[in-house]
């Protein structure tokens, strides 16, 4: 436990690498997507939120936090795939709403909440993917700002 806390402390004091920033952003955007969805996801087209999307996004955030602490390149790729899947599940759940707006019969437009949810979700998996691509080390924990392992 003491070693674990030391690692976190070391990470807080030293982590500044670009892959770290992107994975942190990815987690932040995942959380933002979840919050935006929770606050604005109920509409005339979807009177109940999608449990599947909420659960998947929560898992993404959990795994994301772990990957912020213990950067694992392959793990990040896995998170990216899960995050992409979650985002697509969200869009599928909103298919009726999207169809209605695109068909344009009623003059409905995309709400700000929906747009933000889509954008946050998109940025979540994009940032995660970028973090994974840029990470040079297989296991990125205990690195200092120069990228060397502690």
């Amino acid at each position: 436990m003491h070693a674990f806390m030391e690692r976190i402390g070391h990470m807080i004091r030293h982590k500044r690498s670009i892959p770290f920033l992107f994975i942190a952003l990815g987690v932040a955007f995942s959380a933002a997507m979840l919050i935006a969805y929770a606050l604005t996801g109920i509409s005339t087209f979807t009177p109940v939120l999608s449990t599947k999307v909420i659960v998947m996004e929560s898992i993404c955030i959990d795994i994301g936090v772990l990957l912020v602490l213990f950067e694992v390149k392959n793990g990040k790729y896995g998170l990216y795939l899960l995050s992409l899947w979650t985002w697509l599940e969200f869009l599928f759940y909103e298919a009726s709403y999207i169809s209605n707006v695109l068909v344009g019969i009623d003059g409905n437009q995309f709400s700000i909440g929906f747009i933000l949810t889509v954008i946050f979700g998109l940025l979540a998996w994009v940032c995660t993917l970028i973090s994974a691509i840029l990470q040079k080390q297989e296991l990125g924990w205990h690195t200092d700002p120069t990228g060397k392992e502690a």
């Binding site: 392959n74 790729y77 795939l81 992409l84 899947w85 697509l88 599940e89 599928f92 298919a95």
Partner: peptide
């Protein structure tokens, strides 16, 4: 790794497209 990620990305996208297509 690149191939795995690419193919799995494709698989996820195609699956979701398939779900939408089947619904419609």
């Amino acid at each position: 790794r690149t191939l795995a990620v690419s193919f799995l990305t494709l698989a996820i996208v195609v699956s979701m497209v398939g779900e939408v297509a089947n619904a419609y």
